[in-house]
Design a protein around this nucleic acid. Structure first.
Lengths: 109, 109
DNA sequence: TCCATAATTCGAGAAATATAGAAATGATTT
DNA sequence: AAATCATTTCTATATTTCTCGAATTATGGA
């Protein structure tokens, strides 16, 4: 991953509404959620949310597909993976005992 | 980790000079680097860099200690750990096969 | 076709952030 | 004590980002 992609992803996540939306989508998993549903849950105006979701899509963290008149958003795990990998790149200078615990403590399931 | 801490960490990283500095410190490991050395490597002005390093410290991603007349900066792995954990929180709704590959591909050492 | 619904795009004003020069602080050397 | 060096703090300006209302596009139903 190149640095600009990483910056896009980080600034996409570095904003309250977008971080909330992203986490909602992470929890929703592969089923995702439609724009309106996200707007309701976050109590956000549709147009503002739309701009923010577009930001997440552009950053490669989320993808969307139209379903009738709604648009479904789904988290893109590969984007997340690229970002995390980039941040940990060349950490610890080949001494696994320094960073291994960091990765092991990421308990998600 | 609460959301505001996560936002602080993400916006700290979502800026070119800070992301560069952070990655330099990740690679430097526990030895860290002094402000002047970082400034030289990034070709940044000392005052601008200082403001940016302060941002990383405030976000809990880096810590600093004075050493004579220099100030050494060291990456704070616990901060990184908190952030990654927060981003992956409740992912995949208890289906490890969905997110396990993501974490496994973060090869750092 | 006409209407309603879901969501996006556009444009402008308000707010937040980044940078750099100048001055100040803290520590070492002479 | 004076000079020097490493770094930070202060302050103003320039830039970027955020949000909102209004208008627009796309789809499905009567």
């Amino acid at each position: 991953m190149e640095i600009n992609q990483a910056l896009d992803a980080l600034s996409a996540l570095a904003q309250p509404m977008r971080l909330d939306a992203f986490r909602l989508l992470v929890k929703a998993g592969p089923a995702g959620l439609c724009a309106g549903e996200i707007a309701t849950r976050l109590q956000a105006r549709p147009n503002t949310l739309s701009a923010n979701l577009a930001h997440l899509v552009a950053a490669g963290l989320v993808r969307n597909t139209r379903e009738g008149r709604q648009i479904r958003y789904v988290v893109e795990m590969e984007g997340m993976q690229r970002l995390l990998g980039f941040l940990m790149e060349d950490c610890c200078g080949g001494q696994p005992e320094l960073c291994r615990p960091v990765l092991e403590k990421i308990v998600c399931c």
